[in-house]
Simulated scan of single mutants.
Amino acid sequence: MKRFLSAVILISVLHYHTSWSQEAQGVTQDFKASSVNQPGKEFPQVNSQGRVRASIAAPNANKVQLDLGGVKYDMIKNAAGVWTGESAPQDEGFHYYQLNIDGASVPDPGTLYFYGAGRSGSGIEIPASDQDFYALKDVPHGLVSENIYFSKLTNSFRRCFVYTPAGYNENTKNRYPVLYLQHGSFEDETGWSVQGKANLILDNLIASNQAVPMIVVMDNGYAYKKEEGNTANMPAQPVSVFEEVVMTEVIPMIDSKFRTISDRGHRAIAGLSMGANQTMRIAMNNLDKFAYYGGFSGTSNYPSADEIDPAVFLGGKFNDAKAVNKQLKVLWLGLGTKEPNPFPGSIGAFRKMLDKQGIRYVFYESQDTAHEWLTWRRSLYQYAGLLFK
């Protein structure tokens, strides 16, 4: 009886794979396990076309879908209760995704988990043609350390991750410039060292003498003032104190705990999306503390308009072009060529204002990427190479 059942299952599986291949005409069958799978997991897989194939055992489910890039792809169940399905070709780089099982969105148990989109969930790497710049190589590697501190402004314990370059612990007389690097909305302080591969980007740049050895500080951009009294009287919109946390708590802590060069000429700041908005405000409100600014897929929030009034925008911080050009050694902007609205429009309007004012800046376009980590990895690679020189 067992042999009979095994034969039936085998025939069903073979029939499933035959049906699958017939339905998958035009799909290149060279799928390989994703580089961010959990150890020993065969799925999810990626092929040379950038398609993602997921698989999960859910024998009692009625409907399972692969939810990737805002599209849900139906998966097919075989006789063994294993659902398999694949996506359309995806852009190169890192993407968040999930599985939808009978209406419930859940992480794929085959992948490592990443914090993004406001949750810990699955991620997939579509191999990029230029992935060499963030690849793990046989070069001297720095250290990413977790630093816990108590914030009086938020009345809570917080943490930041700090990258120190190779040789930091051995060359104890050397001091280093610092880059403060921020994540985007619905992400946290883990984003840049995990999804962003910031440490590997810096390792490779420094090893090839394309960047100056530097310390990189990655803090959590969500910091709210702790209101005293009855929680029922808490404001509907909590008050962000992130700028104050950076300026009065994080920077003094980093300068006291690490061997930094603590003048404005050796301090840079950058961020992506929400982080670009936050860091622009920090930099422009504290030009006595920063000489470098980088905005990846963002600048500072302002009403959508074809023209920006420099006398009004950000309190007039860009109204005196001569002063801005003197104070900022690098004003850097990056954007993916496939970014959705409002990013091309808002950054375009900001650039028009800079051009009209005669303010110097560097603009970089990441080819064929949208509002995603490959855009920001490339941006960091380009930006970091210009710092502290």
Rank of each mutant, 00 (worst) to 15 (best):
residue 94 F to C: 13
residue 313 F to P: 03
residue 73 Y to L: 09
residue 221 G to M: 02
residue 129 S to I: 11
residue 367 Q to E: 10
residue 301 N to P: 03
residue 214 M to E: 06
residue 17 H to R: 15
residue 281 R to N: 14
residue 138 D to L: 09
residue 132 D to M: 13
residue 361 Y to M: 03
residue 375 T to N: 08
residue 350 F to A: 05
residue 286 N to Q: 01
residue 269 I to Y: 10
residue 297 S to N: 01
residue 226 K to I: 14
residue 98 Q to A: 09
residue 153 L to R: 01
residue 65 Q to C: 00
residue 242 F to P: 00
residue 98 Q to N: 11
residue 382 Q to A: 10
residue 223 A to S: 13
residue 102 D to W: 05
residue 307 E to D: 02
residue 259 R to K: 03
residue 58 A to W: 03
residue 170 E to R: 08
residue 186 F to W: 10
residue 27 V to I: 05
residue 377 R to D: 00
residue 143 L to T: 15
residue 95 H to K: 01
residue 85 G to M: 03
residue 272 L to G: 13
residue 306 D to G: 15
residue 191 G to R: 15
residue 186 F to P: 02
residue 306 D to F: 07
residue 351 R to V: 10
residue 58 A to M: 09
residue 133 F to R: 00
residue 18 T to K: 13
residue 384 A to Q: 01
residue 222 Y to P: 02
residue 104 A to L: 12
residue 31 F to W: 06
residue 216 V to A: 04
residue 49 Q to E: 01
residue 243 E to D: 01
residue 190 T to R: 08
residue 56 I to H: 02
residue 262 S to K: 04
residue 260 T to Y: 00
residue 331 L to N: 08
residue 259 R to P: 05
residue 174 N to T: 15
residue 200 L to N: 04
residue 206 I to E: 05
residue 303 P to D: 00
residue 231 T to L: 14
residue 310 P to R: 12
residue 387 L to W: 12
residue 341 N to P: 15
residue 105 S to M: 14
residue 376 W to I: 01
residue 266 H to N: 06
residue 347 I to R: 00
residue 29 Q to K: 02
residue 264 R to P: 08
residue 324 V to E: 06
residue 3 R to L: 15
residue 81 G to F: 05
residue 276 A to H: 02
residue 305 A to W: 04
residue 345 G to W: 07
residue 148 I to K: 14
residue 29 Q to A: 13
residue 137 K to H: 07
residue 55 S to N: 10
residue 200 L to W: 14
residue 117 A to I: 11
residue 170 E to P: 07
residue 326 K to W: 01
residue 2 K to G: 13
residue 154 T to H: 07
residue 130 D to R: 05
residue 308 I to E: 02
residue 2 K to Q: 12
residue 338 K to C: 11
residue 192 W to N: 09
residue 34 S to K: 04
residue 288 D to R: 03
residue 221 G to D: 04
residue 160 C to L: 13
residue 101 I to M: 07
residue 194 V to S: 12
residue 316 G to Y: 01
residue 368 D to P: 04
residue 29 Q to I: 02
residue 201 I to A: 09
residue 247 M to P: 08
residue 2 K to N: 15
residue 362 V to C: 13
residue 245 V to H: 10
residue 40 G to T: 01
residue 120 S to M: 08
residue 99 L to T: 12
residue 236 A to R: 14
residue 144 V to C: 08
residue 226 K to F: 15
residue 193 S to A: 09
residue 215 I to F: 02
residue 387 L to I: 06
residue 73 Y to A: 11
residue 186 F to S: 14
residue 26 G to S: 04
residue 97 Y to R: 04
residue 353 M to C: 07
residue 111 T to R: 00
residue 83 W to Q: 07
residue 304 S to K: 12
residue 381 Y to G: 10
residue 240 S to E: 06
residue 201 I to R: 10
residue 24 A to G: 09
residue 354 L to N: 00
residue 135 A to Y: 09
residue 192 W to K: 09
residue 86 E to P: 11
residue 368 D to R: 10
residue 372 E to N: 13
residue 117 A to Q: 07
